[in-house]
Structures are given as structure tokens and as C-alpha cells.
């Protein structure tokens, strides 16, 4: 059974049907790309999966349990991690503390009061800083980082939670081609540990790293398949040539 199973999910904003009967299935340890024109519902779908808002209809099953109505915090505790489209690092905390905050989220409250894991978490924070090329910025405020580095910090924060599924909404937005390539390199090794659902406009980037693609258009799944299948799909061709 797939790690994440989205079935018939719909979401309405006023008169707008942002998602309309969406089915997506993500297997463990795969990279799953979510593409589609602006406003097609990609972010709305990720938010419904992560619990930023609730789906109006349909079901979302994650790792064997129904999470459709679950609170965001509980989903996170089950192994879902989200990086929003708009970067949301904590700007007035240091880069180091942003990572620490993410690592210690599973600790019981009393352990946090007594700062019991501060020493233990330290090594993991330092590893993440090295891996995401942030080591020399550890003491800077997260808000002082460039946009690209903030994205990396957020990805690092999401990964620190050792999620089973990582949801990334446009992680390379505002990055230079050079930074994009580096982002791909940073992401590849995580396939061993978790699955990834990634929203991107840069098709070359997404083709490089993804195993499987789902194309959304106006709140519906237009097509779904391997990268090769999607590249050959006439339906997708049409949307991408006439409207993007």
C-alpha cells in the first residue's frame, strides 16, 4: 500500500472549486512531482495533506491511518513535514536555533523545561548545518539569510524531523540556476529515508529528480505517470503549450 493515498479530495473557496476530486498516490521512498499552471491547486493540495486547512470532501490516508480531519500538529507527529510556498523560517531566531526548534519538537514538555536534549541535539544540528552549507551562518539570524539560503534552512528544518513524507512547495523559487542544481544535490540523498512530494515550476529541475509526476489543472488531475509518460502525454502538452 502507498504511503500517502489522496482520494477524491475537494476544496472550495467561496465560489471557487480549487480542488475537485483529486486522487494522488505516493509510494514510500519515491520523489513525486506535482506540476500544473498557476492557480491549478498545487499549494491547496499540499496544505490539505499537511493540515493547514481541511479538505471539504474525500479522504487522505497516510501511513495506514486516516488523517483527513486530523490537526496539523498530530500529522506532523506522525511523520509529515511541510515547507510552505512562502518561506517561514523564524526570522528573529538564529539559524542554529531554528534547527534546534525543529529537532526538539518530539520531546516531552518537561524534558524541554529541563533542556535535557540540548547537548544531544547539538550534533544533529551541526550535521545539518554542514550538509546544507549553513555552518558559517549558524549564529546569524535566519531573517538575515538570502532567500535561497532561507529555503535551504527550511528544507533542513523539515528534514530534521526525520519525516516519512516531506512536502515541498516551490523550494527553488527565487534561486539562481546554480543554487537550483545544488538544491537537487541536497535532496537526492534523502530518498533513502523518506518520500517527497514537490511542487515546482521549473520542469527541467523536476524531471531531473522525480520518479513520478502528477499534473493538476483547474483543481483536477490532468494526468499522472512516470516522467517519460508525462512528457509524452498529449493532454499535458496541450495545457503547457497553450496556457503557460
Amino acid at each position: 500500500m502507498a504511503l500517502l493515498e489522496v482520494q477524491g479530495v475537494g476544496k472550495t473557496f467561496g465560489a471557487l472549486r480549487a480542488l475537485d476530486g483529486v486522487d494522488v498516490s505516493v509510494r514510500a521512498n519515491t520523489f513525486h512531482g506535482l506540476i500544473g499552471p498557476n492557480g491549478s491547486g498545487k499549494s491547496t493540495l499540499l496544505k490539505a495533506i499537511a493540515g493547514a486547512h481541511l479538505a471539504d470532501d474525500g479522504t487522505i490516508t497516510f501511513d495506514g491511518s486516516d488523517i483527513t480531519k486530523m490537526r496539523a500538529a498530530d500529522r506532523a507527529r506522525r511523520g509529515l513535514s511541510l515547507k510552505f510556498q512562502i518561506t517561514a523560517v523564524l526570522p528573529e531566531l538564529s539559524v542554529y536555533d531554528n534547527l534546534l526548534l525543529s529537532i526538539q519538537a518530539d520531546e516531552p514538555v518537561w524534558a524541554l523545561v529541563r533542556s535535557r536534549s540540548r547537548g544531544e541535539a547539538h550534533d544533529r544540528v551541526m550535521d545539518a548545518l554542514e550538509r546544507f552549507r549553513l555552518a558559517d551562518r549558524a549564529d546569524d539570524l535566519a531573517g538575515e539569510l538570502s532567500h535561497g539560503l532561507q529555503q535551504w534552512l527550511e528544507i533542513a528544518m523539515a528534514l530534521m524531523r526525520r519525516p516519512k513524507l516531506l512536502l515541498l512547495d516551490e523550494p527553488t523559487g527565487g534561486m539562481s540556476p546554480e543554487e537550483r542544481r545544488a538544491t537537487g544535490e541536497l535532496l537526492m540523498p534523502i530518498k533513502a529515508d523518506c518520500a517527497l512530494v514537490i511542487v515546482e515550476h521549473d520542469l527541467d529541475f523536476i524531471k531531473d529528480i522525480c520518479d513520478h509526476l502528477t499534473v493538476l489543472d483547474q483543481g483536477r488531475v490532468l494526468d499522472d505517470g512516470t516522467v517519460a509518460e508525462i512528457e509524452a502525454s498529449p493532454k499535458v502538452q496541450e495545457v503547457y503549450t497553450t496556457r503557460v
Binding site: 531566531l93 524534558a111 528544518m157
Partner: peptide, 24 residues
């Protein structure tokens, strides 16, 4: 100033974000 205080500091800056880490 404890790790608990770090959660408070994060909460003051972006309460919603903390929920996505799993904090109640």
C-alpha cells in the same frame, strides 16, 4: 531560556508554523 523557552520564542514569531513541527 530553556528549550521550552525556545518554543515560546518561536511561537511569538509564527505560531502557525510551530504547529507544523508538531508543537501543541
Amino acid at each position: 531560556r530553556s528549550q521550552f523557552g525556545l518554543v515560546l520564542a518561536g511561537m511569538r514569531q509564527n505560531e502557525e508554523r510551530l504547529a507544523f513541527f508538531g508543537y501543541k
